[in-house]
């Protein structure tokens, strides 16, 4: 069965060099990405991919977000380099790569919008990747709203990738996060918070056809559907200094219903029960196969292998399996069959 892995990361030629030049000394996340050959080496990537028949990828950049280590001018240049390079890879290797999600220089919002248009109209990008916060600002800040509108115009998705660093402490009284909690729990939390801000900003009322792929099976939302559902139906019940019930009246639906408008991917690193939980929440039409390769202990194959093993044994029809593996993605990304 054909498989389109919608969330895989690559540091394409030209981009790696650019990052190294600007920010060779990035800690933590820099260490994580530098030590993974599949990110940089196309031969390694192809060898890993050959283990999985009928397997194709959608490319996107790895963390850290460009805006984290650049000036706005550098970010604009680097995003262009990355997008040109990913477009070239897709063009040269159409059997391996069905498309890419464009990178955006979010520390230069006007330029980010222009780059989104350039990437889609000139480079045939299948959408854009943004992170769950932009240098500590919410994605729904006014300067970023046109990016959502532009993607609605193209009817293409926004890949929502988590980001948070060790500098985001676990406790108010501390200076930094310990034991990579910022990654393990911080990332799903950050994604969930971004999703909530998108919902409560009314973006799905504004643009009901908005397509956002919330990484890692929609983060915490499916597991906490009880809090998101009946919990948030009482919005305002726990707050005294602000009448939050007005927010609910400003929305057309229950908060829970908007969370179900996100798309989710299967990148859960081998967690079978979590996959079932997420699939139950979002439903087959909104779930897409993804592995998050190559960030696994084997530096590439493991998450692909484990995720396929999970999707293969989900108690669903082969027709639904086919939709998760590739048909949903092909329709969303407007791929030729």
């Amino acid at each position: 069965m054909r498989k389109i892995d919608v969330f895989t990361h690559i540091s394409p030629p030209g981009y790696s060099e650019g990052v190294e030049k600007i920010a060779g000394g990035l800690k933590d996340i820099g260490k994580r990405t530098r030590g993974v050959p599949m990110l940089h080496d196309l031969d390694v990537r192809f060898r890993v991919m050959e283990n999985f028949p009928e397997y194709q990828q959608v490319l996107s950049l790895p963390t850290p977000p460009i805006e984290l280590f650049t000036t706005p001018e550098q970010a604009v240049d680097l995003a262009k380099i990355a997008n040109d390079s990913m477009a070239e890879l897709v063009e040269k290797h159409p059997d391996h790569f069905v498309g890419f999600a464009a990178a955006l220089p979010m520390n230069a919002p006007d330029a980010a919008l222009k780059e989104a248009h350039r990437a889609v109209s000139e480079l045939n990008a299948k959408g854009v990747q943004v992170y769950s916060n932009v240098l500590g600002k919410p994605l729904v800040s006014p300067e970023f709203l046109p990016i959502f509108g532009a993607m609605v115009q193209y009817d293409l998705p926004i890949w929502l990738h988590p980001y948070r660093g060790a500098d985001f402490p676990d406790y108010l009284k501390e200076q930094a996060s310990e034991f990579e909690i910022w990654w393990t729990f911080g990332w799903p939390y950050d994604t969930s918070a971004a999703m909530a801000r998108i919902v409560f900003a009314g973006l799905f009322d504004r643009w009901p056809s908005l397509k956002i792929i919330a990484h890692h099976m929609g983060a915490m939302v499916p597991y906490f559907a009880g809090r998101v559902g009946p919990g948030w139906d009482q919005l305002g019940a726990r707050t005294s200094d602000r009448d939050l019930s007005l927010v609910l009246r400003g929305l057309k639906k229950r908060p829970l219903d908007y969370f179900k408008m996100f798309y989710a991917d299967t990148a859960l690193f081998g967690a079978y029960d979590a996959t079932v939980c997420g699939l139950d929440f979002y439903g087959v039409p909104r779930v897409l196969f993804a592995s998050d390769a190559p960030f696994d202990p084997e530096k590439g194959p493991m998450y692909i292998r484990e995720t396929i093993a999970i999707v293969d044994r989900l108690p669903i029809s082969d027709d639904d399996r086919e939709r998760i593996y590739w048909r949903n993605a092909a329709a969303m990304l407007k791929l030729d069959d």
Binding site: L113, K114, H117, V120, S121, P146, G149, A150, V152, Q153, Y154, D155, R206, W207, P208, S209, L210
Partner: peptide, 14 residues
């Protein structure tokens, strides 16, 4: 289309 007709900005950009 799920779009607002006066999102002319996006139409021109595209």
């Amino acid at each position: 289309t799920g779009r607002w007709l006066d999102e002319t900005r996006f139409t021109i950009e595209a």
